Simulated assay, not measured.
Amino acid sequence: MKKKPTITAQTKQNLIDAFWELYCAKRIEKITIKEITTRAGYNRSTFYEYFTDVYDVLEQMENTLISKLKELPMQQLSSPGDPFPFEALVSMYSHHSKYLVVLLGDHGDPAFQGKVKASMKPMIKEILVSQGAKDGFELDYTLEYALSAMIGILSYWFNQEKGPSIENLMELITELSSEGVMRKLIG
């Protein structure tokens, strides 16, 4: 008898949630499958139906978050002078902050920021080129700089207890972008 898709999806999510609780408390090398399955209320064989190891759980979580980034309507959310969809990113970041704050933080996965940038760079680059930016090393390096700054400032903001309002943060990011980075991108 086949399992119902909703049951298997819930089982997988329960295992992910158990992993996440442990990952927030300790480094991935210290997390065992036994801890995950005990916390989730399943046995090891159930874990192996969905994942190969703890690193696979992390990778699947990260891939899910990256796919959410790729779903952002970049072209619709950017204007000719401002191709970075800050509001969409802040919204997405807010919605998934539970994960992103940790993954992009000091104790998260160092490779995750690179994955985020790699998923966004082609979309933003396409917008910039369509607006007249010259494709080349300057565009690549400037995008790398801008994306690193944007991810860094969002991570910093979400980790602050008394940070500025989202409106003030957006205003600052827009100023920084239009007065510095964006002049270089659009030329």
Rank of each mutant, 00 (worst) to 15 (best):
S177F: 12
P73L: 09
I151C: 11
K4G: 11
L65H: 10
A118G: 09
L128T: 04
M120E: 05
A133T: 09
L176A: 07
Q10E: 14
E71V: 11
K4T: 15
E29Y: 12
G180R: 08
W157H: 13
I173T: 12
S45D: 13
T38R: 14
N14M: 14
F86I: 07
T37W: 07
I66T: 03
Y48N: 09
A9T: 15
I186P: 00
G163T: 02
S177I: 01
N63M: 10
M92Q: 10
E62M: 10
L169Y: 04
S119Y: 05
T8F: 02
E35C: 05
Q160E: 13
E126A: 14
Q60E: 10
E138P: 00
A40H: 03
L172I: 06
K4M: 12
E29I: 05
I173Y: 13
W20Q: 02
E29T: 13
C24M: 13
L172P: 00
A146R: 03
K184N: 10
Y141R: 11
E29A: 12
K115I: 00
M92V: 02
R39A: 13
A9E: 15
E29F: 13
E161F: 03
D140N: 10
L65K: 10
L139V: 06
I166M: 05
K2G: 04
I127M: 07
T6S: 15
I33M: 11
H107P: 01
R44E: 15
P122V: 03
T64D: 10
Q60P: 06
G187E: 14
Y48R: 04
S94C: 01
D56V: 07
M61Q: 09
E126W: 00
A149Q: 08
